[in-house]
Design a protein around this nucleic acid. Sequence first.
DNA 1: GAGAGTGTTGTAAC
DNA 2: GGTTACAACACTCT
Length: 282
Amino acid sequence: MPELPEVETIAKKLKSVVVGRKIEEIQIFNPKTFQGDAQLLLSQEIVDVSRRAKIIEMVFANDYVLLTHLKMTGQYLFQNDGDLIAGGHPTNDWQEQLPGKHTRVQINFEDKSKLFFNDMRKFGWLRLVAASSLETVYSALGPDIISPEVTTDYLLSQFKRRKMPIKQAIMLNEIVCGVGNIYACDSLNLAKISPFRPAQSLSREEVDILLSSMKVIINKAIEYGGTTFDGKYVDIEGKAGSYQTKVLTYGREGKNCYNCGGTIQKTKLGGRGTYFCPDCQI
DNA sequence: GAGAGTGTTGTAAC
DNA sequence: GGTTACAACACTCT
C-alpha cells in the first residue's frame, strides 16, 4: 500500500490539518515504533509537512523533524472534536475505535485534536531527528521518480552495471525512490518490457519508454489517491484510495492484458509477487 | 489447525 | 561490489 503516491497523498492531507497546531502530549504504545526523545516536541508547533522518498517529514518550530515511514501497514488518522474530519472510512474493526488495537503512537494537540499512528505489523517507525542531520538520513537514497533529476541518461548509467532483473532495479531505492511492487509491475506492462530482462540489456529507447511509463503510472496513482487492497490503506481522513480500480496488472492474474488482450500471469521474482503479460512484455 | 503468503527495507551473508 | 536471503511482525488465506 504505502508507495510514493500514497505517502504523497497522506503528506498533503496531513499538512492541511496539522500545520499550526501545537503538541500537548505524545503517547507511545509501542516503544520500538518511536525513536528519539518525544519530550522534545512538547509545546512545539508544526510548521510544515513534506515528503521525501516514502518518508513523511513533520517540521517543528524548534528545528526538529519528525520522520515517519509507514512501511507495510502504517497509517495516520486525524481526529477533531471526536469525529474523523471526513467520513467514509472503511469499517475495519481496527479503525472503529481510536486509539485502537493497532494504534502505536497518539499525538494530542493543545486544541484537543488528535493524530493517531496505526500500524498492524509494527514495521513502520517515527524518528525524531535534528534538521541538521537530515542529509545523513537521506544520503543512501536516489532521487524521487517524479523528480527532474531522473532522466534517461541517469537511468542508463545506473542500469549499465546491473545484471539484476529490470523490475528489481527500478525498485531499488539507491537508483530511484518511489517505485514499489505494484507500480513496478504496472510500469513494465505499460512499457511492454519483461520484468525478467537484465537491467543492462535495455536499449536507450526502452529506458526512455520505461521512464515515461513509470511517471505516467505514478502520477495516475497520485491522482486517484493511491491504492487500497483489503481496506488496508486509508488516507488520514480514513478514505480509501482508488487506484486499485485502475491497476493494469497487480492482482489481475488470469485477466486480460489491456495492451494486447493476452492473459496476465503471476510469478515470483526476487521474493516478490510479480504480475505481467507474457504476450506483449518482451 | 498448520503453514504459506503479504504492499517494505535494512542487514548480513554469499 | 553486486546480489540474495532473511528478519522485523500480525494477520488472512489455503
